[in-house]
């Protein structure tokens, strides 16, 4: 039995931010064809399904459902914008992108955004290193996390770059068992070949 409880309203609001976007409207992304995802051109090896918007400037793709594998593409987030949608400004505000961030600080921004959007207590950056994303200097972030009430260890790999003061992100994540490794080569190939 717990010692303390926050008010009902707070709980109601947090839930709202958690609700998975169950909106249908999946769109087939055909293999080997270049798809225009907002400001990015992406060429997948296999067929993918394009879903809703995790953020104002973002799109999510999945093969087996977002709980098993997902890749998100965010294009041109302006200074002051958030990576993930701010569903509840008062109770779960999202970190705001600052175009003055130094390269290694993009990892800090990504971590805080991902933690807030998914309400995580367990998140660790395994590695952050310079990388190339669509011919731009960027940061590669490898991370590990668990979702609340789930014992599955999940891994992720994100690439972030700031171009003309705007943030571009590609982010792949999946359960560590089987799925992450199975999808990684294609995810990496897509992220490396992405064009602005």
């Amino acid at each position: 039995m717990a010692i303390h409880r926050r008010s009902v309203i707070f709980v109601a609001v947090v839930l709202a931010a958690w609700s998975p976007s169950a909106s249908a409207g999946w769109k087939l992304i055909s293999a080997k064809e270049t798809a225009q995802v907002d400001g990015l051109k992406v060429t997948p090896e296999r067929d993918w399904n394009q879903g809703g918007r995790p953020g104002k400037q973002g799109r999510v793709w999945t093969q087996d459902g977002v709980g098993l594998n997902a890749i998100e593409f965010f294009s041109a987030i302006p200074a002051g914008g958030s990576l993930y949608k701010e569903r509840d400004k008062k109770n779960n505000p999202m970190p705001k992108f600052d175009s003055g961030l130094l390269l290694p600080e993009l990892a800090d921004f990504f971590e805080r955004s991902f933690r807030a959007a998914n309400q995580l207590s367990d998140f660790t950056i395994v590695e952050s290193a310079p990388t190339d994303i669509g011919g731009n200097k960027g940061l590669l972030v490898r991370y590990r996390y668990t979702m609340p009430n789930d014992e599955l260890t999940r891994l992720g790999e994100a690439r972030l770059a700031v171009v003309d003061g705007k943030l571009f992100v590609a982010n792949y994540y999946a359960p560590q068992l089987h799925y992450f490794g199975a999808g990684l080569p294609e995810a990496q190939a897509m992220m490396q070949r992405v064009r602005f």
């Binding site: 009902v8 709980v11 109601a12 609001v13 947090v14 839930l15 609700s19």
Partner: peptide
Amino acid sequence: QSTGGLAEP
């Protein structure tokens, strides 16, 4: 399920 629909174990 709390008022907002949040699951409480």
